[in-house]
Measured scan of single mutants.
Amino acid sequence: RADKQHVLDMLFSAFEKHQYYNLKDLVDITKQPVVYLKEILKEIGVQNVKGIHKNTWELKPEYR
């Protein structure tokens, strides 16, 4: 399990490339446990629960 700041850096870097990611792809990118990753994502992102981007994560507007 990596340092939180290191995980945040990896996530922000990923979100610079694409606006939406599913959790599986973010786990592959960060190599972090799902529960730990979700904890961090809830602080900086929102999970889309409907629409064409259903079940994906994106950054909260203040982090874009």
Rank of each mutant, 00 (worst) to 15 (best):
D28V: 09
H6A: 15
H18K: 14
H53Q: 10
L37I: 12
V34Y: 04
R64K: 11
K38S: 11
M10P: 01
V35M: 13
L26S: 00
K50F: 03
E58L: 05
E16M: 10
K38R: 12
V46G: 03
Y63I: 08
F15I: 04
V49T: 15
E43R: 04
K54M: 11
S13A: 13
M10T: 08
I29R: 05
E62R: 08
P33E: 13
Y63M: 13
L26F: 02
P61A: 10
L41W: 00
A2C: 03
I44R: 02
T30N: 01
I29S: 03
V27N: 03
K54P: 10
K42Q: 14
E16W: 03
H18Y: 06
N22E: 13
K54L: 08
I29Y: 11
K42Y: 07
D25R: 05
A14R: 02
H18Q: 12
K38V: 14
V46C: 10
D9T: 10
L37Q: 01
Y20R: 14
L59Y: 01
D28T: 12
G45V: 02
V7D: 02
M10N: 04
P33C: 01
T30Q: 01
V7S: 02
N48A: 11
L11V: 11
E58W: 05
L23W: 03
D9G: 08
Q19E: 14
I52K: 14
D28S: 13
V46D: 09
L23D: 03
A2P: 12
M10C: 08
K38M: 15
I29Q: 06
E16L: 06
H6Q: 15
A2G: 15
F15Q: 01
D9W: 04
W57S: 03
A14K: 03
V34A: 14
N48D: 13
D25E: 14
V46W: 09
W57D: 02
K38Q: 11
I44P: 02
L11H: 01
S13N: 11
H53I: 14
Y20I: 04
A2L: 14
D28P: 02
T30G: 01
L59S: 02
Y20S: 10
Y36V: 11
V27T: 08
R64V: 11
K31C: 11
K4A: 05
D9I: 05
K4M: 04
P61R: 08
D28K: 09
H18E: 14
